[in-house]
């Protein structure tokens, strides 16, 4: 039952991804990427990762879709038709995929309780959380308490990215007052000055 559901979700995920490859209208692409995130969230729930699922649904399906919609509103609505189809990217992708699949042959079976990942430090956190932290959700306990410094580092990354976005986009409205015509670069002033 669980396997059937997983495979069904998976087929939907692949269909969405392949539709994104072929669709030219960027609005549809952004919407499909939101659908992809929600399907991925369902798959995370099937695999017991409820915290990851709701983060993915909120961040992947929500915030990222809004950011992308903002981007297409500021840039272009459609993707240009590619002039020629090359087989080189397909060959690269198939080769990489084959190497990755070869790499998985040594992996333990899915859901196996004696896999190395399950026998290392994970059980320790599960056993100690009720006495050490007394928070029922073990993921929260590890994220905010045992590995609190990592989460602090994550906040620094988000802050840096936000700073980068502000620096890149500051003065956008001001510069928009004198738009460059299509195909004329911002180097134009420099060209004229010389």
């Amino acid at each position: 039952m669980e396997i059937a559901f997983t495979i069904l979700l998976f087929i939907a995920l692949v269909a969405t991804a392949i539709a994104i490859v072929f669709i030219k209208r960027l609005f549809a692409v952004v919407m499909l990427s939101g659908v992809f995130s929600l399907l991925a969230a369902l798959l995370f729930i099937v695999m017991d990762a409820v915290d990851v699922a709701f983060t993915e649904a909120a961040v992947g399906g929500g915030i990222s879709s809004v950011l992308m919609l903002g981007t297409i509103a500021l840039t272009a609505r459609t993707q240009k038709q590619p002039e020629r189809y090359s087989l080189v990217p397909l060959a690269i992708v198939l080769l990489t995929g084959a190497v990755l699949i070869y790499g998985t042959l040594d992996m333990p079976n899915f859901g196996s309780p004696d896999a190395p990942a399950q026998r290392h430090i994970g059980p320790e956190y599960i056993a100690r959380t009720p006495t050490d932290i007394d928070v029922p959700n073990i993921v929260t306990a590890v994220l905010a308490s045992y590995r609190g410094y990592d989460t602090l580092g994550e906040v620094v990354v988000v802050f840096t990215a936000g700073l980068g976005v502000i620096l890149l986009l500051s003065g956008l409205g001001r510069r928009r007052g004198t738009p460059y015509p299509r195909g004329v670069s911002a180097n134009r002033d420099q060209d004229n000055a010389q």
């Binding site: 990851v52 983060t55 990222s64 956190y125 993921v139 994220l143 590995r147 988000v158």
Partner: peptide, 16 residues
């Protein structure tokens, strides 16, 4: 729970 914690962080860094 450890992969879950890792991936939670990765999702947030990914959106950044």
């Amino acid at each position: 729970p450890l992969p879950h914690v890792l991936i939670l962080t990765a999702i947030v860094v990914g959106i950044a």
